[in-house]
């Protein structure tokens, strides 16, 4: 990785090309973009009324599943797993689609009836499938309106949202760096913090408690869409039923 402009790699011949792809497009790209002064979040994003809403959490938290579900509801995919924050005029931050496919466990593909969209296995080690998003193709930068930290819901409870104060939000943004160890190793704390504060001046962060199974999907949609309408966003009027 060099000067934010070049990635050179030399596979050792025994590595799975899928793993190399993941590493280059994930970790290596993050190094490159951090060299350019960007903040990279471990998040997936969908477009709601020409704005971006982000879902973040550690690996396995359900970021891609959330994006897939919202795709079925009519919200186009912007980012899968990696969100690079771009500064806009007026101090806001935006994300832009990089055309990545979703990465979903085979059970999720079956459960969501996305077999037709499933492509190849991500890698031998990583038993997920690349899945073509149902809706995508948004080329414009979209300003970030809200960010949700995915948290598991206790059994028997309804999905719910909790607004985080600026301190809690800043802690979550730091925690949800795409590669927190790279923020440490590259000593880009100052850039990271400055961009986090800039983001929080225009976008709010919430904890989203939702079930990991698909039993309460309708309640989850209702909760999010009500929230988006309260934020002044128009929700999908082309509601596709999910069963």
């Amino acid at each position: 990785m060099h000067s934010g402009g070049e990635i050179l790699f030399d596979p050792d011949g025994n590595s799975d090309p899928g793993d190399i792809g993941l590493f280059v497009l994930g970790t290596c790209f993050t190094v490159l973009l951090q060299q350019r002064g960007y903040l990279i979040l471990h998040a997936s994003a969908v477009s709601v009324d020409s704005h971006a809403v982000l879902f973040c959490g550690p690996s396995g938290a359900g970021k891609s599943t959330m994006a897939a579900l919202l795709g079925m509801r009519g919200y186009p995919l912007l980012n899968e797993d990696v969100c690079t924050l771009n500064p806009m005029d007026g101090g806001k931050y935006s994300v832009r689609s990089d055309s990545r496919m979703l990465k979903l466990w085979s059970e999720t593909v079956v459960e969501l009836d996305l077999n037709q969209n499933a492509r190849t296995l991500v890698s031998e080690k990583h038993k997920k499938f690349f899945v073509e998003p149902l809706r995508s193709g948004i080329a414009d930068k979209q300003s970030i309106k809200a960010l949700y930290v995915l948290s598991d819901l206790e059994k028997g409870n309804e999905p719910s949202l909790e607004h985080l104060n600026p301190l809690e939000a800043a802690v979550e943004l730091k925690r949800n760096a795409y590669r927190p160890t790279l923020v440490e190793a590259m000593e880009v704390h100052e850039d990271y913090f400055r961009i986090s504060i800039g983001l929080l001046q225009h976008a709010s962060v919430y904890r989203l408690y939702r079930p990991k199974d698909f039993g309460q999907t309708e309640a989850l949609f209702a909760l999010l869409e009500e929230h988006w309408r309260n934020l002044g966003l128009q929700t999908s009027d082309q509601i596709e039923t999910f069963s």
């Binding site: 104060n165 600026p166 301190l167 730091k174 100052e190 913090f193 400055r194 001046q201």
Partner: peptide, 22 residues
């Protein structure tokens, strides 16, 4: 300590110790 304003709050972070304050 790094500090940034969000509304009326001043959010602060100490990079070395990873401490936050408001």
């Amino acid at each position: 300590w790094l500090a940034g304003r969000v509304g009326d709050d001043l959010v602060m972070m100490h990079a070395k110790s990873n401490q936050f304050a408001n």
